[in-house]
Design a binder for these strands. Sequence first.
DNA 1: CGTGTATATGTCGAACATCGACACGTAAGC
DNA 2: GCTTACGTGTCGATGTTCGACATATACACG
Lengths: 108, 108
Amino acid sequence: MSDIPAGTLDLLILKTLHTLGPRHGYGIARRLEQMADGVMRLSQGSIYPALIRLEQRGWISARWGLSETNRKVKFYSLTRTGARRLDVERALWAQSAALVARVLESES
Amino acid sequence: MSDIPAGTLDLLILKTLHTLGPRHGYGIARRLEQMADGVMRLSQGSIYPALIRLEQRGWISARWGLSETNRKVKFYSLTRTGARRLDVERALWAQSAALVARVLESES
DNA sequence: CGTGTATATGTCGAACATCGACACGTAAGC
DNA sequence: GCTTACGTGTCGATGTTCGACATATACACG
């Protein structure tokens, strides 16, 4: 069982919020683990600091509310700045993935 | 201009040695930058520590020699352990890339 | 002969992300 | 009352990468 790909957590969180709309940290984590088909873990030690970081940068915003399970939770939403940042992160990832793919496929 | 994708330097070095055979640090760095089409940089502050790390783990081995430009250089080769490790890193990367792709393409 | 440039290896401290373990609290079901 | 799943958060440790610096040599050119 591996960790989540280094440096992609911001992208994954941003995209998850973009896709699903407002969601709380625990829900984002569960969603990502489910997408990973159980082969990756996502520790709380990663997700919460990441959310705080993203909020400080203005890419997501938080508001307290009640979950479907009737608990006090923090709902995070993608901000307009965050949506733009998602595009940037996406492009950076595409570049990275393309480079790695090229190297892995190279034969000389 | 972005950096090389976090956490993939080992994989990229291992694969480069696998593809090209023995090569020195500077040459590996130049090769990778060339593969990146100039859109990524690779600082010496990354490549040399990485090579030392890989050698300590037994994945590559070093031997002094002369370059085509007639300079004293350290040639690194992939060890048998390193070749096995390359497969592992490859598989881990494939998992990561698949996860990110799945999240990025998800629509709900 | 002197100077500059590309080649080449390395070190150092700082910055940063992630992990694993821990602490705390609550709703619901039995 | 107890347990379990849910939920947020902190903390120290670890590891990677960066940017700046130090050092040295082969070769071309004036």
